[in-house]
Amino acid sequence: MKTVFERTPTLKDCPTHYCPGCGHGIAHRLIAETIDELGIRGRTIGIAPVGCAVLAYDYLDVDMIEVAHGRAPAVATGMKRTNPDKIIFSYQGDGDLASIGAGEILHAGHRGEQITVIFINNAVFGMTGGQMAPTTMLEQVTATTPKGRTAAGEGYPLQVAELLVTLPGTIYVERCALSSVAQVRNTKKAIKHAFELQLSGAQGLSLVEVLSPCPTYWRLSPAKAMEWIESHMTKVFPLGQLKGGR
């Protein structure tokens, strides 16, 4: 028998700190595989967010930096502008990117920075204990919306991908999900495309929004959490290549 699937070298061979069924581990693997398949480990610099994925550098074996909450696109800008030959990617959660870092992603996108942004949307702040995120669904119960999010009280879930599509500086925006084998495979293609665009020198920012399960703070089993992405999240966050098809 031949080995047809194994851990890719850029994904360090160590346990993660993530909860059982968390999507971060899958997303990390897709990025690591992309880096190895494109052969760019030696010129890639990754940016870890504040949030559950703050320790991403413990899992991804590339040069990495951990930055202040939400500021990854600004840090990426500083890196890419001074190192145009390097491949710069940020990995950000919804609290990081859509809440405190909304300004930074908007302007990096607006300037058309040649960076790749992997945006993990799990509709909740995980690291701090399951508080409401800008992407939290209406009626979703969180630590800070104990009766469920209301449009009147907290506003509607923020559609980051749709927002970035409107900016001339973005060249590729796709929303994917980790909700099934097929969707994971599709997410891999999207991530790889986003890296390839940067590698080709395409002028602009690419963002892949990934709907990712947080079984712990959705208070669902891992399997049910996957179902919930498809039954609930994709209704508000429709999947697809929103800008710049591949």
Partner: peptide, 22 residues
């Protein structure tokens, strides 16, 4: 060399952070 007007002071210092790290 690089000159960039940032969108805020927060962004400026973090651009410095990124460039310095490299």
């Amino acid at each position: 060399r690089v000159f960039l007007q940032s969108e805020s002071e927060l962004a400026a210092i973090n651009m410095v952070f990124g460039a310095s790290a490299t």
